[in-house]
């Protein structure tokens, strides 16, 4: 039995969530040992997005994830849920399991116990459909040093969806990477690479963003850019799960703080 805290109060529900997203409305977060609740605000109002199609009602639910890395019990029953238009910020010390949790949500790591649900259906049962709606920005920007920024995006986004060169250029301009997008990535600084990776993130058109330290290596401008992009994504009813050391300046009513204890 697990208690899930909602914006409107407490609701209790057992492990069977087969009735789908309706079974747990609102951006609530659960509580287990190893997990502290800081703030919980659900039900982000539907803000009309400008010129973009909002994503349909999606919801990510993480249920009692237990994960071991070697002989270390890293995730000890992590439960929370994020709904369309809200962002879960994972905080915690180095080694607290932020990256592990993100990778487990993405399906790169198999949890020993618990599961991740997307739109109410276990993510593992619909892996390709789930991945098609997911964008994961990890520690590594996944760029090839011997290709230019544009070429990198043409291939990395191209395998997901057909993308026109103009669209790539627009995204690169949006993230302030237009000036160096035609240079080989190996000649770029880490912050510049990060900006190209952010352009790729935008181009994937995914509803769920999993961001691992998205502001790493970025200057003050770049950090603001990440916050702006995140806010726009939330306004489009997108979802974000981000591991951060410093909080992202996002509207408080859309944020969900999750502190992982080491």
């Amino acid at each position: 039995m697990r208690a899930v805290l909602h914006a409107g109060g407490f609701c209790q529900h057992d492990d069977d969530l087969s009735n789908g997203p309706a079974g747990c409305p609102g951006g609530g977060i659960g509580r287990r040992n190893g997990l502290k609740i800081r703030r919980s605000q659900g039900h982000a109002g539907s803000i009309p997005a400008r010129g973009t199609i909002p994503f349909d009602h999606c919801m990510l639910t993480v249920e009692g994830l237990h994960l071991w890395r070697g002989d270390r019990h890293v995730l000890r029953g992590v439960s929370f849920s994020v709904e369309a238009g809200s962002c879960a910020l994972l905080t915690g010390r180095n080694g607290a399991g932020k990256t592990t949790l993100l990778r487990a949500i993405a399906g790169l790591l198999e949890p020993e116990e618990g599961q991740v649900r997307w739109r109410g259906i276990p993510a593992r049962a619909q892996r390709d459909a789930f991945h098609a709606e997911l964008a994961y920005l990890g520690h590594e920007p996944a760029l090839k040093g011997d290709l230019t920024g544009q070429e990198n995006l043409r291939y990395s986004v191209g395998i997901r969806r057909g993308v026109a060169a103009a669209e790539i250029d627009a995204a690169l301009a949006r993230t302030g990477a237009a000036a160096f997008a035609d240079r080989l990535v190996r000649a770029l600084s880490a912050g510049q690479r990060r900006r190209i990776a952010l352009a790729g993130l935008l181009l994937l058109n995914a509803s769920l963003w999993l961001l691992d330290e998205p502001t790493t290596n970025l200057d003050a401008d770049g950090q603001q850019l990440v916050a702006d992009l995140a806010a726009e994504h939330l306004a489009r009813q997108g979802l974000i799960v981000a591991a951060v050391h410093h909080s992202l300046p996002l509207p408080a009513d859309r944020l969900l703080g999750i502190e992982l204890a080491a």
Binding site: A106, G107, L108, R127, D128, A129, F130, H131, A132, E133, L134, Y136, G138, H139, E140, P141, A142, L143, K144, G145, S156, I159, R160
Partner: peptide
């Protein structure tokens, strides 16, 4: 594998 490309392949929702 080192630069994370394989990870992105695995998460692309494609075969």
């Amino acid at each position: 594998a080192q630069d994370g490309t394989l990870e992105q392949f695995a998460l692309s929702g494609q075969s």
